[in-house]
Design a protein around this nucleic acid. Sequence first.
DNA 1: GCGATGCTTCGGTTACGATCGAAGTATGAA
DNA 2: TTCATACTTCGATCGTAACCGAAGCATCGC
Lengths: 229, 229
Amino acid sequence: MKEGPDIAQIGALIGDPARANMLAALTGGRALTATELAGVGGITLQTASTHLAKLEAGGLLAQRKQGRHRYFTLADEAAARLIESMMGFAAGRGHLRHRPGPKEPALRKARICYDHLAGDYGVRMLDSLISSGSIDAVGDGLALTEKGESDLKCIGVDVGALRSSRRPLCRSCLDWSERRAHLAGSLGKALLASFLDKGWARRATESRSILFSPEGDRQFLKLFPLETN
Amino acid sequence: MKEGPDIAQIGALIGDPARANMLAALTGGRALTATELAGVGGITLQTASTHLAKLEAGGLLAQRKQGRHRYFTLADEAAARLIESMMGFAAGRGHLRHRPGPKEPALRKARICYDHLAGDYGVRMLDSLISSGSIDAVGDGLALTEKGESDLKCIGVDVGALRSSRRPLCRSCLDWSERRAHLAGSLGKALLASFLDKGWARRATESRSILFSPEGDRQFLKLFPLETN
DNA sequence: GCGATGCTTCGGTTACGATCGAAGTATGAA
DNA sequence: TTCATACTTCGATCGTAACCGAAGCATCGC
C-alpha cells in the first residue's frame, strides 16, 4: 500500500463546504476577488484568505494580482474538469445543496460551465449538432465533421484558428442538471462566445445563468432544432 | 449561490486518508472485506466499519454480504472513474503518497486499473492499437475500427458480445504513472481478461501489479509493437 | 447447544482544522 | 503624508469527526 497518488489531499481540499462553494462559484469562469469569494463561502475575509492559500498550494486555483485586488480563477482546464466531474457524480447520487425542485429555472435552462454553454440549451445544442451531422459521436468521444466545419463558418466561428490551440476542439462534459452530455472544449467556448457577441444572450451578474433575449432565443432555437423522430 | 450539486460531501468522504486508502485499494477491482480494508487504511475494524458505512451512504461503495463476510467494491464504473480522475489530477500536481522515485517498478510497468490494464504496458497497448489502425483516436474519444474488430477476433476477443452491454466499448483513462491515456471500457476489460486467461500474466496477491510471465511478456510485446518513426 | 470469527454499535477521548478578532503589510487615493 | 481599501498573519477558541476499547449481533463450524 501507500503507492500511487494521494487523493486524500485534494479530497480534503474540496471537502470543506466553504471551499467547495468557492470552487463552484469559480466554475462560472469569472475571476473573483478574495472578498467576493469570502461572500460566496459565507465566511470572513481572514478565513477565506487561508482557504484560498490552501487551494492554491493544492494546485486547484491560480491567482493574479491586479492593483490591490487579488483575482482567483480555477488553475486550469484540468482543475475545472475535476470540479465538473465531481458535480456530475454528486448530482447523480442526489447530493444537492438545496431542496430539490425547480428552484432556479433559469439556471437549468442555460448557464455557463467554466467557459461553455450548459443546461437544457447546452444539451440541445449538442444533440442538434450531432443529428445534423456536424459532430460525430464516435466511440466515447466527439469529433467535428467537414460539414460541421463549413456550417460553423456560416455562423461566424473560425474553426481553423481554434485548431492551432493545444486544447481539444470538442470535449463532452456531463451536465449535472440534465444528466446528459453537452459540448465543451475550445469549440464549445467559441460557440458561447459568439452567442454573447451577437447579443443573443448575456451573462447574469450574480449567478451562472445565461440570459437569452427574446430574439436570441428565437435564433438559437432555429439554429439548433430538435430531432423530431 | 447554494445552487447545484454538493461537491463538499463527496470531497469530504474522499478527503480522509483512511477512506482514501480504502478507495484506492478498491480501484484494484477486487472485492475486499471490511477487515482487509481496515488493514489498508491502517485503522481498527471498528473505525473501518463506520468509514465504510459512510462511503456506502455516499454512493461510492457497494457491499455484498456473503456468509459472515461483507465484501466491498466501488459502487459502479462512475465511482471508479471519479477516483481514477482524482488520481490523475493528484499525480499531475505531484501529490504522491510516497517519496518519488522508482519505488514500485512492477506497478509502473503493469497494473490493474479497476478492471483493465494500466501502467507502461497499458499505454503501450493503446498506442500500438492506434498506430496499427485498430482504434481510431478521433476527436477526444476512442473508437474501434472494422480492422480492429477482425484483428481482435484473431486474439480471441469477441467484440460482438461486448457491444450488447450498455457499457461503452472504448474509453480512454488517464494513467497516473505515465501521464498518458490507456484503454478502458469493456474492450479494455476484455483484453486484460484474455491475457490472464491465456496465462500470459497473473494478478499479484497483495498489490495492484499485473505480473507477466517471460513467455507472456514476449507475446505481449510482439502483439503490440511500438511505432518506430 | 458452544465457541470462534466477522462485523456493528456505543461511549468517551483526543486532535485537527475551521473560524474569527486583532494586528500587520501592501497598494492606491487624496 | 495620511487615510482607506484589500488582503495576510497571528493567536486563541471551539466543534466536529476520527479513533479505539468494550460490548452487542450475526453467522459459521462443531
